[in-house]
């Protein structure tokens, strides 16, 4: 929860409470992604607009500052990777590895995200308003991920800590070899992965779910008791924590 408190996500899409500076514009049609990231690593402004990304890789990677970055278009691989404290909004789609190894801050994608969104991420909030493809939250280590649509197969694979909220469906292999992350899914769930089971959704979990949905700006769901009632919780059965040869067929 500390990560959530540090991340004023409600500001992430417009930054109305930031310093009131003009947003600095960086157009990737004329600037390189290295120039963009160098600027974000030694920022001369608090707010940035990034234009013409057209699927470029590594947009806004390695931010370690209190910045608002608004990317106007589709991004390629690893957007927002290793983010600390930055608030990144992508008005488009995101390629593989969105927010991989994020430490804190927030990333919001207005469209869909490709595979491995939030891979290994340790903190912060990752919001995908559309759907994600495979392995969303693979090896997540503390990040909170909220997906407005569906997630693809093998999501939360080897998830270790953090929360994954899926407002749509989750495909086969959800939570395979999961450790201690908590998963909430509103829609249909395919075949669960090895050692992932459905668990009782108690009041404290409902409160956590409301908090995550609210933080993600999905208040229509968070305030709809009927919708909340459709969510189910999944987590680890904790039978595969330690390798034994008897389990070899289960991995």
């Amino acid at each position: 929860m500390a990560a959530l408190r540090k991340s004023p996500e409600t500001e992430a899409d417009g930054g109305s409470t930031t310093l009131g500076e003009e947003a600095r514009v960086i157009d990737l049609a004329s600037s390189s992604v290295r120039e963009l990231n160098a600027e974000l690593h030694s920022p001369t402004a608090r707010r940035y607009r990034v234009l013409s990304p057209r699927g470029t890789h590594a947009v806004a990677v390695g931010i370690d500052d209190d910045l608002d970055v608004h990317v106007e278009g589709d991004v390629g691989y690893y957007c927002g990777g290793m983010n600390q404290r930055g608030r990144i909004v992508v008005d488009g789609m995101a390629g593989p590895g969105l927010g991989e190894n994020m430490m804190s801050g927030s990333i919001r994608v207005r469209g869909d995200a490709s595979q491995s969104a939030g891979a290994t991420a340790r903190g912060g909030l990752l919001v995908v308003e559309g759907k994600t493809s495979m392995r969303c939250g693979i090896s997540m280590k503390g990040v909170d991920i909220v997906v407005g649509g569906d997630v693809g197969p093998m999501s939360a694979f080897m998830a270790q800590a953090g929360r994954l909220v899926v407002c749509g469906d989750a495909a086969d292999g959800l939570g395979d070899s999961i450790y201690e992350a908590r998963i909430y899914v509103r829609g249909k769930v395919g075949e669960l992965g090895a050692d992932c089971i459905e668990k009782e959704l108690r009041d404290e979990h409902r409160a956590e779910l409301v908090e995550l949905l609210t933080a993600a700006g999905m208040t229509d769901v968070a305030e709809d008791a009927g919708a909340l009632g459709e969510f189910r919780r999944y987590g680890s059965a904790r039978t595969l924590y330690h390798f034994t040869s008897e389990h070899a067929g289960s991995y």
Binding site: G55, G76, Q115, S133, M134, G152
Partner: peptide, 22 residues
């Protein structure tokens, strides 16, 4: 293989874009 190869196509915003399932 990557989105950036599609970004150049005429009328991409009207296309249905998806990743093939396994």
């Amino acid at each position: 293989s990557e989105f950036r190869s599609l970004a150049v196509l005429p009328g991409l915003s009207e296309a249905t874009i998806f990743e093939p399932e396994p």
